[in-house]
Write a protein that binds this DNA or RNA. Sequence first.
DNA 1: CAAAGTTAAACAAACGTTTAATTAAAATCA
DNA 2: TGATTTTAATTAAACGTTTGTTTAACTTTG
Lengths: 209, 209
Amino acid sequence: MELNEKQIQIIETAERLFAERGFDGTSVRDIADEAGVNVAMISYYFGSKEKMMEALFELRVGSVKIRVESLIKDESLSPLEKVNMLIDEHIDRVMQKQCFHKIMMGVVATNKNPAILKAANSVKIRNAEVVTELIKDGQKKGVFKKKIDVILMMNTMVGTVSQTMMSQTYYREFNKQQDMPDEEFELLLKRRLSIHIKTLFKAILTNEA
Amino acid sequence: MELNEKQIQIIETAERLFAERGFDGTSVRDIADEAGVNVAMISYYFGSKEKMMEALFELRVGSVKIRVESLIKDESLSPLEKVNMLIDEHIDRVMQKQCFHKIMMGVVATNKNPAILKAANSVKIRNAEVVTELIKDGQKKGVFKKKIDVILMMNTMVGTVSQTMMSQTYYREFNKQQDMPDEEFELLLKRRLSIHIKTLFKAILTNEA
DNA sequence: CAAAGTTAAACAAACGTTTAATTAAAATCA
DNA sequence: TGATTTTAATTAAACGTTTGTTTAACTTTG
């Protein structure tokens, strides 16, 4: 689906509001008002509120696939380096599109929109397969342990990042960093998250201390 | 707030539906129909849909506080044993009240109901304080590392469990355990989660391999 | 002038809540 | 205990809003 400027403007407004109030908690009038367009434009451009949500999903997910799979094929990197890059890749993606990931959590929690759920699931399955291959490669090379639960490991990465993103205000308070500029804090948070998860993964994957 | 039999029946129906469809995605008529009562009973008993949600929160959270804090004071346990018990405690709680935890994720994601959000935050803060004390104790006794990010560590526990609970059907498919009875699978999942998180925590907390 | 974009108004359906009438249960009194 | 009154529980119907979507008239663009 090709999107013109106005469509993207509407979608991004919707994205913000969905993240703040949930899909059902946001009316098409709210979206239209905040985007500065007439209510009818949403039906005109997307057909329905539901289909606009699907367009948002397509816009955000469509661009991701390629980078991950090309990363895996890079022969100059060790398995552990690849895993670490996947971690940073994931952190960046979530922190850069926080609104979208909040929405996705809601969509997955409530089994509402089947089209999106199915698409999200297929993305997850492909990711798991890619990582599984990567782990097998590491095991063959003798740098990774034999028994590794890939899904639980992925859940730890995804869960830790989501949980941290959702409660970052609280993290900031707890560490008394309210006076720090927003951008600086986000960088700090990403760096700490990266180190934290890489430590965890190293403990799961390798035999080192 | 004292709850009679019928009120609890309504609340538990609401809990299930909220988890399936979200708060705004569930109408009071849906709840009333499924609970087998008249629509007006919800306003009659709770005042409003919003206040019913708060009653649900009170019902589920009210009972938890005591166990954790008494566990901490137990002098016969080592710091690592206490941490491990907190992990199992958390896994049990989430897996036993899956619907409620799904709802809570939605409530925290969308900053809608301020009363619940405030209460949930205060629970989280107290938990973090308790764990921080526990970590300090372990550090004093020389069994834990010096620099530990308690919040990130907690986020890993909470995030991993949430993520695993939400996608357990998918985990089941991936590991080809669809033929396993539900109860058996849940036990298996809890055991694996427990081992997984304890391994992670050991890597964060101690200097051992 | 035809196509696409934009608008205010109207649409029926669904929403949370309230009302007023009725039934069931509990409390009071003879 | 049995009749009577008071309170609580339950109901169907109606309330006014808000919901997502559509219409038909109008404006802008190519």
